[in-house]
Nucleic acid binder design. Structure first.
Length: 317
DNA sequence: AACACAATCAACCGCAAGAAC
DNA sequence: TGTTCTTGCGGTTGATTGTGT
């Protein structure tokens, strides 16, 4: 028997919000706040909406400082690098992009960035769409294209992205969804001793600010959400999949350059330090200081090497 | 102009964590 | 300590818009 629904679906209004509803919700929250109870909020306002719907509307559309419109190259870079490193943890990724919501980032990735990276699409009719999850095909035909009409990551780069994703899955063999899996609690990678770089919030300074996941909960107030967009949880680093910038592996630079080439049509220089393409946007993923020793997704610890061997044997790499 | 198909994105859904009782 | 409730999250859906034939 499933849990009771959060609201009576027969009586609540669904579908797109009207300007009047928006105005009512916005005015009320600006004056009274949410009262820490989204379920009760629509009743107080007189809206025939589910509390969850109100919350979503506020967070994704009505609250102040929401940024709409095109993503900048810096934001693209942040999204791509974080996705490669930590997967579909949209709330964490969005937290690195001031003014962007997780829904926005998720939509943007699914509709644009992913296609760009995995081979883009041809205009018009006759476009053949591979299934979005078909990473194997993406590797083969995506990497091999040289027709000048579309660009994609090389097979090598795709391989690495897929390996990262595969490693994440192997970390999480029970199929626990990414937001459920908390490596702070489940140390599936034993080497959890990496130094964590820090940065000040939204100041554009040059390293990632990392806090424990618990602090994310504390920062969920409206003000925090509006002003903060602050922290990347330790999980990203603890996963052993963060920070693709080790000088040990020159392919990292190649992939970074490929990403930049794909996303912006420019090519970065060839040293890890100079690949810091996103400083202004606060997306400093590439610029990890080498002696901070944060493990990156291309580094292979004994544990990851073992997993990698399993992977290569299964996938015949 | 009409149609078919693709792309986009706001909104919904269900699940799990954690707080409250 | 166990149960209920609320929140937050990622995945998915579907209405709308855009584009090519």
């Amino acid at each position: 028997m499933g849990r009771a629904p959060c609201c009576d679906k027969a009586t609540v209004k669904r579908g797109p919000w009207s300007p009047e509803e928006d105005a009512m919700l916005k005015a009320y929250i600006e004056e009274h706040g949410t009262g820490n109870n989204w379920i009760a909020l629509p009743h107080k306002i007189g809206l025939k909406r589910c509390g969850k719907s109100c919350r979503l509307r506020w967070l994704n559309y009505l609250r102040p400082n929401i940024k709409h419109g095109d993503f900048t190259p810096e934001e693209d870079s942040t999204i791509c690098s974080l996705y490669i490193s930590i997967g579909s943890r949209w709330s964490i990724i969005a937290a690195q992009l001031p003014g962007r919501t997780d829904n926005d980032v998720k939509n943007y990735w699914n509709t644009k960035l992913k296609k760009r990276l995995l081979g883009g699409r041809r205009k018009g009719r006759g476009t053949h769409h591979r299934p979005q999850s078909d990473a194997t095909n993406a590797e083969t035909d995506g990497g091999a294209n040289n027709d000048g009409e579309e660009r994609s990551l090389s097979a090598s780069a795709m391989e690495r992205i897929q390996l990262c994703m595969q490693l994440q899955e192997m970390q999480n063999p029970l199929g626990i969804s990414s937001h459920q899996y908390n490596p702070l609690q489940q140390q599936m990678w034993p080497n959890n001793h990496h130094q964590v770089p820090t940065q000040s919030n939204s100041s554009g300074s040059s390293s990632l600010n990392v806090t424990v996941a618990a602090e994310q909960g504390q920062s969920s107030s409206m003000n925090d959400q509006c002003n903060g967009f602050r922290q990347l949880e330790t999980a990203a680093v603890d996963d052993g999949l963060a920070s693709p910038s080790s000088p040990k592996n020159s392919n990292v630079v190649t992939i970074e350059a490929e990403l930049q080439e794909l996303l912006y049509g420019t090519t970065s220089t060839t040293t890890t330090d100079s690949v810091a393409v996103s400083q202004q946007g606060g997306a400093d993923w590439w610029s990890y200081d080498q002696d901070r020793s944060a493990v990156n997704c291309w580094d292979f610890t004994p544990e990851t090497s073992s997993v990698f061997q399993d992977y290569t044997s299964v996938y015949d790499i």
